[in-house]
Structure formats: C-alpha cells, structure tokens
Computed example of a mutant assay.
Amino acid sequence: MSEFKSDQYGPCTVTIKHGCPIELAMHIMGGKWKGIILSLLSKSPMYYNAIRREIPGITQRILTLQLRDMEKDGLVAREETNDSPKRVLYYLTDLGENFVPILKSLKQWGNIYIDKQEEGLKK
C-alpha cells in the first residue's frame, strides 16, 4: 500500500488503520493519470503500449510510475508474456473493479460541473 504519513494529510489521518477513509482513497487515487488508466482498464485488459497510445501527453516514465503505484496498492495486476520482446498486460484486480462505480460517479459529477460552468459563461 502507498506510504501514508500522519503529518502529510493533517489530523484526520493518524495511521492507515485509523485514518480518514476519504483521505486514504484520495491519496491512493492521487495523480493526474490514475483515473484515466483505471477507466481504460475497466473496459478490458490492455498492454502497456496500448495504454500509452490511448493517453496523449503521458510520458513512459509517468505511466510506469502510476501503474507501479496502482499495482502496489492492489488496484491493478500485471502479466508478462513470453513473447519476444516481452509484453506486459495490465488488468484490474477485484479491488480495482470495486472502484469502477466510483469512477463512473466522478465522471457524471464532472460532466454536471462542466455544464454548470459553461452555463455561467453564457450569462
């Protein structure tokens, strides 16, 4: 699991065991690309290069770091092929699958927010 320090997120988070679950979830999902990566993997397992092609602007280094974080946190698993060169297939774990409805809710809320902001600009 990601390192989660009490002084990093204020008084609510003394330890992982006794911390604020919302802050813990936000910490685990922190990062510009994690939501997008999980959304892609929620549709089907994907090879590393396919994920990278689907996310314009992400660097190889950042994608690797984000995938490693999510693997360490138990959201994503990887499977190496015996191909030459080796390929790595990523897929959601059960824990990652449990997060998919939350992603959908976040997307829905984001669309509502965008609509409200656009309405405000028209006035």
Rank of each mutant, 00 (worst) to 15 (best):
Y9F: 14
G10T: 09
G10F: 03
C12M: 15
C12H: 12
C12I: 03
V14M: 05
T15E: 05
T15G: 00
I16V: 06
I16E: 12
K17A: 15
G19L: 05
G19K: 04
C20E: 09
C20F: 06
C20V: 07
P21L: 08
I22G: 11
E23I: 05
E23A: 10
L24W: 01
A25T: 14
A25I: 15
M26T: 06
M26I: 06
M26S: 08
H27Q: 11
H27K: 11
M29V: 06
M29T: 09
G30Y: 10
K32I: 12
K34T: 05
K34Q: 14
G35N: 06
G35Y: 01
I36Q: 12
I37Q: 01
L38M: 13
L38A: 02
L40H: 06
L40S: 07
L40V: 03
S42W: 00
K43C: 05
S44E: 07
M46P: 02
Y47L: 00
Y47P: 03
N49C: 03
N49M: 03
N49S: 05
I51R: 03
I51S: 03
I51W: 01
E54N: 05
E54Y: 08
E54R: 07
I55K: 00
P56F: 04
G57M: 04
Q60V: 13
Q60R: 09
R61P: 00
R61L: 11
L63E: 02
L63V: 00
T64M: 08
Q66A: 13
Q66F: 03
L67R: 03
R68E: 03
R68P: 00
R68S: 02
D69E: 14
D69K: 07
M70C: 11
M70F: 04
K72W: 10
D73A: 08
G74S: 07
V76W: 04
A77C: 09
A77T: 09
A77S: 10
R78I: 00
E79H: 02
E79S: 04
E79F: 13
T81P: 01
T81W: 02
N82Y: 02
N82E: 09
D83G: 13
D83A: 15
S84P: 08
S84V: 11
P85L: 13
K86V: 06
R87G: 02
V88W: 03
Y90Q: 04
L92D: 11
T93P: 08
T93D: 11
T93A: 12
L95V: 14
G96H: 05
G96V: 05
N98S: 09
P101R: 13
I102C: 12
I102A: 14
I102S: 13
I102L: 14
I102E: 13
L103E: 11
S105H: 13
K107D: 15
K107W: 14
K107F: 13
K107Q: 15
Q108W: 06
W109L: 15
W109S: 10
G110T: 11
G110F: 11
N111V: 07
I112T: 12
I112S: 14
I112E: 14
I112F: 12
I114R: 12
I114A: 05
D115S: 10
